[in-house]
C-alpha cells in the first residue's frame, strides 16, 4: 500500500515496466494480489468448503473495489478487507437462512424423493474434506471449524498468519486483552480438536476405513 494517493503506478507486463495512468482497477488488483493467499485462507476458515470460500472472496473483493474510497488508511489494508469479508459472510448467512424455506425447500423437497435414484444411493463425500490441497491442511481446517468463530479467527490470524496481537485486535475490532484470552482458549481448543482428528484418522486406519 505504499502508493496510496498516487495517480499513476507501474506494472510488470512481462516485457518490461509500463506506466498505467488512472487505472483504478489495475491498482486495486495489484494491491490485493499479495494478500490473496491470506484472504483466501481467511475465507476458508469462515466457510465450510472451497467453493463457498471462493465465492465469498469474489463477492467481498468486488464490494471492496466498489467502496475502495472508504479505506482511509487507518489500520492495515488487509484488516480492512477482512472486515468486508466478515460482513459479507454474515450477510450471506442471514440471506441464506431467510431464503431456505422458499426456493431451496421447493427444489430440495422434491429432490429428496429422487435424490438417491440419481446418485446410485451412495452419499458423496463431505465437500469439506476436499476443501484443501492436502490432507494435513484439511485436518487443520476441520479442527479449526470445531472452534467457535470468535476463537477460530484469532487462532487463524495469530498462529497461521502470524500477526501481532495489536493487528489482530484492529482487524477484529476487539481489545488486545480479548485477543490474548481468545488466543489462549482457542489454542487449547485447537489442540484438543486436532488430537481428535488424529485419533479419528488412526481409528479409520485400524478399521481399514478411509477419511
Amino acid at each position: 500500500m505504499g502508493q496510496q494517493g498516487a495517480r499513476w503506478w507501474e506494472v510488470e507486463d512481462g516485457r518490461g515496466r509500463l506506466s498505467v495512468s488512472g487505472n483504478e482497477r489495475a491498482r486495486f488488483e495489484a494491491e490485493v494480489e499479495a494478500l490473496m493467499p491470506r484472504l483466501h485462507r481467511f475465507c476458508l476458515t469462515l466457510c465450510k468448503d472451497r467453493e463457498e470460500a471462493e465465492d465469498l472472496l469474489q463477492d467481498s473483493l468486488v464490494r471492496a473495489y466498489l467502496h475502495r474510497d472508504s479505506y482511509q488508511g487507518h489500520g492495515s489494508f488487509f484488516g480492512w478487507l477482512c472486515g468486508i469479508i466478515r460482513n459479507q459472510f454474515i450477510e450471506g448467512r442471514r440471506s441464506a437462512a431467510r431464503r431456505r424455506s422458499l426456493l431451496d425447500s421447493v427444489l430440495e423437497g422434491a429432490s429428496s424423493v429422487l435424490g438417491t435414484l440419481f446418485t446410485g444411493g451412495v452419499e458423496q463425500p463431505d465437500p469439506e474434506a476436499r476443501a484443501c490441497q492436502s490432507e494435513q491442511s484439511a485436518m487443520l481446517l476441520r479442527a479449526l471449524h470445531a472452534l467457535p468463530e470468535k476463537y477460530r479467527l484469532v487462532v487463524l490470524l495469530c498462529d497461521v498468519e502470524e500477526l501481532g496481537y495489536e493487528e489482530v485486535a484492529s482487524i477484529l475490532g476487539v481489545p488486545v486483552g480479548t485477543v490474548k484470552s481468545r488466543h489462549f482458549r482457542g489454542r487449547a481448543q485447537l489442540g484438543t480438536a486436532f488430537q481428535a482428528e488424529l485419533d479419528q484418522q488412526a481409528c479409520a486406519v485400524r478399521t481399514g476405513g478411509g477419511s
Binding site: M36, P37, H40, R41, L44, E54, L57, C132, Q133, S134, Q136, S137, M139, L140, L141, A143, D159, V160, R187, L190, G191, F194, Q195, L198
Partner: peptide
Amino acid sequence: LPEEARFAIQAFRTERP
C-alpha cells in the same frame, strides 16, 4: 499444540485460491 498440528499449519499456509 501437537507437533502434527504445527506441520498442518505449515501445510495450510500453502493454500491458495
